[in-house]
Simulated scan of single mutants.
Amino acid sequence: MYTKLKLLSGAAILSIFATPAFAQQETAAGTNINNQATVSFTVGGTNGTATSNTATFVVDKKVNLSVVAVGGPTRVAVGSNDQVTTWTVTNLTNSTQDIRLTADQQNVSIPLLGTDDFNVSNMRIFRDTNNNGQWDAGDAQITYLDELAADASVTVFIVANIPNTPGVKAAIVGLQGTVAAGGSAGSLGADLVATSILTPDSPTTVDVVFADDANLLDQLRDGKHWAFNAYVIDSAVVSVLKTSRVISDPYNLLVNPKAIPGATMEYCLSVSNAGPGIATGMALSDIVPANTTYVPGSIVVGTPGTGTCILLGTSEDDDATGADESDPVGGSFDTGTKTVRGALGSVLPSTTVNVAFRVTIN
């Protein structure tokens, strides 16, 4: 089911990353509270006592729960499967209850999560069976929490597949908890129904009173609670632009040098990330072209944001190790394959990093 909405209230936005509300220990529903009074008196110099009957009432059921998304959006790649969002469900009712769980996708715009523009598939809910905070093979797929004790909290996961659709950015998902009847282990009880406010309190009957807050997709005091999170595509569009220029030649030196044998040429490779995600583990390689010789110590790897290819320094001299030249920011030259390498690391969106090196013309 995909619920289509357009606007999220300020209160609902705050509830997305709220901390679970843990109530103080409350008297359990169904508890009998008894009270008896004694009167002391004197009649004609004789002391006496009188004892009242026992007044008894039973504590009613105060129904409440909390569903909270743990952490921010889950960053995923296009076409990836079994991607996980994490949630915490807490039973704030003063008795043991079943909690029915519903995973859904919300076509909403949430400033903290983004704008929903693609649909996930194969959404499933798992309980963190081994309590390690991570979805793994030991976790059980569920549709409800069975016999969750009062004030107990459980971690659950929504696991879903991401479509192989270029250009998409975010899918907003929700998890709803609904308080259901407890008392029968191994089976889901019926959703609780509040006792009518038109019905007087019965001292011998456990009435049901909903005490939960309103949220985006549920009403005030309806025994339900929603929370929201998102899958955000962490893709990156990377491009490389390579240019060359003459630095000097043996005759004109630095004055309008020409690309003649013996001249020094500088190559500049500009690596750009157009986003929207961060490109990680980026590594550049370039084989020195035929009819040229690499200039030892000439590799310079820029830092993020570098926009020019002006050599600022040199690195260590060559030796005979094969991958034998490196500088402090990740450049190296492999003499065996005549390959220049640059370790660029993580490149932020809308950022360019440059790698420069020099050769001489044979």
Results as ranks from 00 to 15, higher is better:
K6Y: 15
G10H: 06
A12Q: 07
L14A: 07
A23W: 15
Q24S: 09
T27C: 03
A29N: 00
N34F: 06
A37C: 13
V39I: 09
N47F: 09
T49R: 02
T56R: 15
V59E: 15
D60R: 06
K61F: 06
K62V: 06
N64M: 10
V67G: 08
V68S: 07
A69T: 00
A69I: 00
V84G: 02
T85P: 03
W87K: 00
T88Y: 04
T90P: 05
T93G: 04
S95K: 13
T102M: 14
V108P: 00
S109V: 11
P111I: 10
D116Q: 12
D116R: 15
V120G: 04
N122Q: 01
N122P: 05
Q134I: 06
Q134V: 03
D136G: 00
D139C: 04
Q141L: 09
Q141A: 09
D151Q: 14
V156K: 00
I162A: 04
T165K: 10
A171E: 03
Q176R: 09
A180Q: 06
G182H: 14
G183W: 11
G183T: 00
G186P: 02
A190L: 07
V193T: 11
T195G: 02
S196L: 03
P200V: 09
T205N: 03
D207I: 00
D207V: 01
A211I: 05
A211L: 04
D213A: 13
N215S: 07
N215I: 04
D218G: 05
D218F: 08
K224Y: 04
H225G: 01
N229C: 05
A230H: 10
I233K: 07
V238C: 08
S244K: 12
D249G: 06
Y251P: 00
K258L: 11
I260P: 00
P261H: 11
G262K: 02
Y267D: 03
C268V: 12
A274G: 01
G277F: 10
I278W: 13
G281Y: 11
M282V: 12
A283V: 14
V288R: 08
P289W: 07
A290I: 14
A290L: 15
T303F: 15
T306E: 14
G307Q: 13
C309S: 05
L311P: 00
L312T: 13
T321A: 13
A323Q: 08
S332A: 12
V340S: 02
R341D: 10
R341V: 02
G342S: 10
L344M: 02
V347W: 08
S350M: 12
S350D: 03
T352L: 09
A356V: 07
A356G: 08
R358G: 00
V359I: 06
